[in-house]
Every structure is written in C-alpha cells, then in structure tokens.
Simulated assay, not measured.
Amino acid sequence: MQVMIRWKLRPDEVDRELELLRAVYEELASVQPDGVRYATFQLEDKVTFMSLVDLATGPELLQQLKVFQRYRTNLDDRCDEPPVMTFLHELGAYRFH
C-alpha cells in the first residue's frame, strides 16, 4: 500500500512538529521494521508537510510504535489543515526505490 499524506500546520507548531518527526525517524532507524518505507518532506511554505509511505504489510506497523502514537495523538490540533491521505498507484519509477 502506497499513500501520500499532506497536512498544513499552524505556524506556531512547526518547531514542535520537527521535534516529533525527528523522534519518529530515530525510532524507525532503531527498530528498523520490515516492510516500511517512509519519507517526510517540508514544503516551500514551511508549514505544509507531505509524507510518502509504502507499507508492504499495512499501516499497523507504524501504529504499533509508541513514538508514532505520540506523534499522531495531537496532530489534528496542531494543524490548520488536517492530514489528508491519498492512495497512490505507481505507474513507473526511476531510481525511486
């Protein structure tokens, strides 16, 4: 399953977001769960973020991580525009994998 998630933070929440995301990626690097590819990008406006997620075994893998649970707990409260998930259907890729 491949998804894109896009959300827009309140400007005063950007530093907190970056801190929480660092913790998520530190945990992913430590645990190294199989079947997960995850990347987050901060867009040019500095308040919009986008994640690309490839979960071979489903979203449960991420949701089991305590640090991800902590990250996700108040995300909607930190946003001007809440996360929107879009399922992706790959048509082709060059050196993306």
Rank of each mutant, 00 (worst) to 15 (best):
F68K: 03
R10I: 10
F41S: 00
V24T: 08
V14M: 06
Y38K: 08
T86D: 07
E90Y: 02
L88H: 02
I5W: 01
R10E: 12
Q69K: 14
T86E: 12
L61Q: 14
E13P: 01
L88I: 11
I5M: 11
V24N: 11
A56D: 15
D76C: 02
E17M: 05
D45H: 09
E44P: 00
L88S: 03
L21G: 02
Q2W: 11
T40M: 09
E60L: 12
G92I: 04
V53F: 10
L55H: 03
D80S: 04
K46N: 07
D77Y: 09
K46I: 01
A29F: 08
P83Q: 02
A93Y: 08
M85A: 13
V31I: 12
L62S: 05
M4H: 01
Q32S: 14
R6C: 07
E17K: 01
Q69S: 06
T57I: 12
S30F: 07
E90V: 04
T48E: 04
E19P: 00
V24I: 15
N74L: 07
D80A: 09
C79Q: 04
V53S: 13
R78M: 05
V53K: 12
V84I: 13
K8L: 04
D34H: 06
R70E: 11
R72T: 10
R16I: 10
L65Q: 12
A56K: 15
V3W: 07
Q2T: 12
Q42H: 05
V36C: 06
V67K: 09
Y94I: 11
T48W: 05
F87I: 04
L61M: 14
N74F: 05
L61I: 15
T40S: 06
L9N: 10
Q63G: 08
V47R: 11
